[in-house]
Design a protein around this nucleic acid. Structure first.
Length: 556
RNA sequence: UGGUCCGUCGCCAAGUGGUAAGGCAACGGGUUUUGAUCCCGUCAUUCGCAGGUUCGAAUCCUGCCGGACCAGCCA
């Protein structure tokens, strides 16, 4: 994550610094506090904060709060938490576009005085008609040529609440025939008689995004205003305001492609529907592509950053990054950092008959096989152990190549302990194997034994010492790579088996010490995290973050 | 069919006139008390297509094809 592959944003910034256009750069992350952050926002965060960090600049967090009826304080808090969790911190205090409402109002007056803005009485519907279409020019508003004085007076009345919502609006006077619809006299102030979460009841007129954003950037000395491709058509307008207003600086807007990942959806509306219709348990359900959901799933901040870095930045539209790339980033981080442990998801009892009744001893295993500096842990071993049901097959003719686990009459290594040989097994009335009798090979603890070649290595937990746990296994939420593209209704492509709750798992006792949100690799199973909210020493609950890479499973 | 942008390996992505980086995936092989990790190797005579300019083009020009976005008093 330090190679810094070349991309057009890095090139622009580095050129601006070299040429002396800027001595230092300032970027900003401008979320609207009207929903939870998701993987797509993670890219915007990593790009804005990451680039600034790389070039020793600053990044402002500025809530773009120009539409109070959709926004809430709760979202502000959640967004701040998500950004911090991702590992970033902003420059100074949190900022709000509403911090500049006074200035923006002055700017509107400035435009009016210069004949660059007018109060328009057209209704929303009329305005749509006057706007024209993609192929036809629009028509001028009948109010377009009002005098400066009249506009000043009307705008004053708008501000004072003398008009109803929708009765009129303030528009920039640009060009109703422009091929760019954003330039056809866009609305810059509208009447909204609602309480604002930051400014209270001070205002009943609010600036539009287009009017507020660039001016907010200019107030803060933002040098590079990075946004997504859909704002490309707004850039001429962004620049028009900057050129017609006495702004303190001239930021540059640069667009880049947003992140799309397959097998998921990221639109706020769709995510909300999943929550509202109880397809998932909430915004932070581990199957959700939200930052909070991924966090709950056990995805680490480092792996998200790595993923964003891997997937790159470009202006190519309609690209879809393979979820497998996120998986790779997660495994990469967790493999390096997660301590190992043993957990049996579907227990099958094995009695070691050549060990005396009540026998038990401690065996030691490193916390991490490639990192001895992380220390060791002690694991109790005894005469009765559990192995996973899937690690035994009664068909002893299975080849060693095909099944590297326990079969009757053959040997297998118990990870960190002895080699054992399955002698016999018993079944219940339904034909399920319920118990295996096996023997340990003397001298095989921590050593190989001449002439005995175990088929493989399996994990285990002592019956007497094992601790029960609940383990939740997640699969992708959708069974279609692009659930909301084209004619697809994303609700038709929900994977009915995206959640499996396994009760009665038995895990090694050291896991009783696990803290919520601590990640482990359960050997041979995958990466798991102690649930952020429901895990406790009295009730162990782990969420499966992702399985180990498994070439064998694919060939079956 | 108006405007803007984009098309480089299955996926992402460098490259900006000098003869196709890298990552993910895949496929071989080695190490291994995790079928993991790690290591080694293979994987675009070709850059949406067709012409043109040039000693030389993925990079420049022309035309065509395909995709994305824009007609909220949303951001």
């Amino acid at each position: 994550m330090t190679e810094n592959a070349s991309n057009f944003l890095r090139t622009i910034i580095s050129d601006d610094l070299k040429s002396g256009k800027h001595e230092t750069i300032v970027t900003r992350f401008p979320p609207e506090p009207n929903g939870f952050l998701h993987i797509g926002h993670a890219k915007a965060i990593c790009v804005n904060f990451g680039l600034a960090q790389e070039f020793q600049g600053q990044t402002n967090l500025r809530f773009d709060d120009t539409n109070p009826e959709k926004e809430e304080q709760a979202y502000i808090d959640a967004i701040e938490e998500d950004i911090r969790w991702l590992g970033f911190d902003w420059n100074g205090k949190v900022k709000f576009t509403s911090d500049y409402f006074d200035t923006l109002y002055e700017y509107a007056l400035h435009l009016i005085k210069n004949g660059n803005a007018y109060v328009c009485d057209l209704s929303a519907e009329q305005m749509r008609e006057y706007r024209g279409s993609l192929t036809e020019p629009g028509k001028n508003s009948p109010n377009r040529d009002r005098s400066v004085d009249e506009n000043l007076e009307l705008f004053e009345k708008m501000k004072n609440g003398e008009f109803d919502e929708g009765a009129c609006s303030l528009r920039a006077k640009i060009d109703m025939a422009s091929p760019n619809i954003n330039l056809r006299d866009p609305i810059i102030y509208r009447i909204r008689k609602v309480h604002h979460h930051q400014t209270g009841d001070k205002w009943c007129i609010y600036p539009s995004y287009d009017f507020a954003h660039g001016q907010g950037d200019a107030q803060e000395g933002v040098t590079h205003s990075l946004c997504s491709l859909e704002f490309e058509d707004h850039r001429p307008l962004y620049e028009w305001f900057l050129n017609n207003l006495p702004v303190p600086s001239k930021p540059r807007q640069i667009e880049f492609a947003r992140l799309n990942v397959n097998y998921t959806v990221t639109s706020k509306r769709k995510l909300k529907k999943l929550v509202d219709e109880s397809v998932v348990a909430g915004w932070d359900d581990p199957r959700m592509p939200t930052i909070a959901g991924m966090r709950r799933r056990g995805v680490t901040p480092a792996s998200i950053r790595k993923f964003i870095d891997m997937s790159g930045i470009s202006r190519a539209v309609g690209t879809v990054v393979d979820l497998g790339m996120l998986d790779a980033a997660i495994r990469d981080d967790l493999n390096d950092n997660a301590p190992r442990a043993m957990a049996v998801l579907k227990p099958l009892k094995v009695v070691l008959t050549n060990l005396p009744e009540g026998h038990h001893e401690m065996v030691t295993q490193p916390e991490h096989p490639q990192k001895p500096e992380l220390g060791e842990r002690e694991i109790p071993f005894s005469r009765e152990i559990y192995i996973d049901q899937e690690d035994f097959n009664e068909d002893s003719t299975l080849s060693k190549k095909k099944f590297k686990r326990l079969v009757p009459g053959d040997y297998v290594r118990l990870r960190g302990a002895y080699i054992i040989k399955a002698e016999e097994f018993s079944k219940d009335a339904d034909g399920n194997v319920v118990e295996i009798k096996a023997t340990i090979v003397e001298g095989s603890l921590g050593a190989n034994v001449d002439g005995i070649k175990p088929r493989g290595v399996i994990h285990w937990v002592s019956v007497e010492h094992g601790v029960p746990a609940t383990i939740r296994v997640y699969d992708r939420l959708f069974n279609h790579p692009t659930p909301d593209k084209g004619d697809n209704d994303f609700m038709d492509h929900i994977n009915p088996d995206s959640l499996q709750i396994i009760e009665g798992c038995i895990v090694e006792p050291s896991l009783m010490m696990a803290e919520p949100e601590q990640s482990f690799q359960f050997e041979r199973e995958g990466y798991f995290v102690a649930d952020r909210y429901e895990h406790s020493p009295n009730h162990l609950v782990f969420n499966k973050t992702i399985g180990l890479r498994d070439v064998w499973e694919r060939s079956v």
